[in-house]
């Protein structure tokens, strides 16, 4: 592949292993990851869809052609047309605009759950694995209790107890997602627990916190990131499920699961009400799965 001047220089600089600065070493790793992502078409497709989702969510007001909350009963249940690309719902709201705003809700839930779950899961799992003994027993039995419930049932129970609403749905989903992360972090920590480089750090006087954050985190991070990416699709599905059952996002907020649920009553007359958000959920969760699979190949070659 012929590359023009500056790009070719940049490529050479990034690919060279003869580093002259710490920044170059870091960029080199990132660049190699990028190259293998591009080389894997399915993972790249997943990445592209996720990127599209982020762009759509960020620029929702500019992309949406109608106000997602404006009701117009005269226009209720219109079939897809040039004015309303995906038709209108039972209140005459534009389905396309609601779909665009729904991307914000979806992204909001997935990011919030991930941000809550990653540190909690890591700290509990890694502490249990590193310290061992009774700390391990106590923390892992608590994890087991959470793991022993089907996640949707547990999320349902929590969001029923906390009351409907998107923040409560996030808390309920987070409570069901952290235990597998903790298990994974513990398993990873155990494999490095007695490695020479951890012992070397101990013999130089490093404390537990430093070893967990500086030495264990960089090693666990790849598999945890992969696991979280793969989890995002199930977070989306659970959020949609809660929305479908009326426990997640509340009307008039645009949320894909709730949109699919309200369209159910008009399924025969207005198929687009259920189909369009359904396809959106399918596409995005598939994209997260493909991306997660690709990331596993890139970051975590052991499990490839």
């Amino acid at each position: 592949m012929a590359k023009s001047g500056t790009f070719s220089n940049l490529h050479d600089w990034l690919i060279s292993e003869d580093f002259t600065s710490a920044r170059q070493a870091r960029l080199h790793t990132v660049y190699l990851g990028w190259l293998s992502l591009v080389a894997n078409p399915l993972a790249f497709a997943g990445f592209a869809v996720v990127l599209l989702l982020v762009i759509v969510a960020a620029f929702a007001p500019m992309i949406a052609i109608h106000d997602p909350f404006a009701q117009d009963f005269a226009m209720a249940l219109q079939a897809p047309s040039a004015a309303h690309w995906f038709g209108t719902d039972e209140f005459g709201r534009d389905v396309f605009s609601r779909l665009i705003y729904g991307a914000r809700t979806t992204l909001y839930i997935t990011i919030l759950v991930t941000v809550i779950v990653a540190p909690i899961g890591f700290v509990i799992g890694a502490t249990a694995g590193y310290l061992g003994g009774w700390v391990d027993v106590v923390l892992m039995r608590i994890t087991d209790i959470f793991l022993s419930f089907p996640s949707l049932v547990l999320a349902l129970a929590f969001s029923a107890a906390l009351g409907p609403g998107i923040e409560n749905a996030v808390i309920a989903i987070a409570l069901t997602v952290w235990p597998p992360i903790a298990r994974l972090a513990r398993a990873e920590t155990l494999t490095f627990r007695n490695a020479d480089f951890v012992i070397a750090a101990e013999l130089q006087g490093a404390g537990t916190g430093r070893i967990l954050l500086r030495h264990i985190v960089p090693l666990c991070a790849p598999s945890i990131i992969v696991r979280l990416t793969l989890n995002m699709s199930s977070i989306i599905l659970t959020a949609a499920g809660l929305g479908f059952l009326g426990l997640g996002a509340q009307p008039p907020m645009a949320e894909w699961g709730a949109m699919a649920a309200s369209g159910r009553q008009y399924l025969l007359d207005a198929w687009w009400l259920t189909t369009v958000p359904g396809i959106a959920i399918l596409t995005v969760s598939l994209a997260f799965n493909l991306l997660g699979d690709g990331l596993r190949d890139i970051m975590d070659p052991r499990n490839g």
Partner: peptide
């Protein structure tokens, strides 16, 4: 091969 942290420069 085992005594240096693999992800630290």
């Amino acid at each position: 091969f085992g005594s240096i942290h693999p992800r630290h420069t």
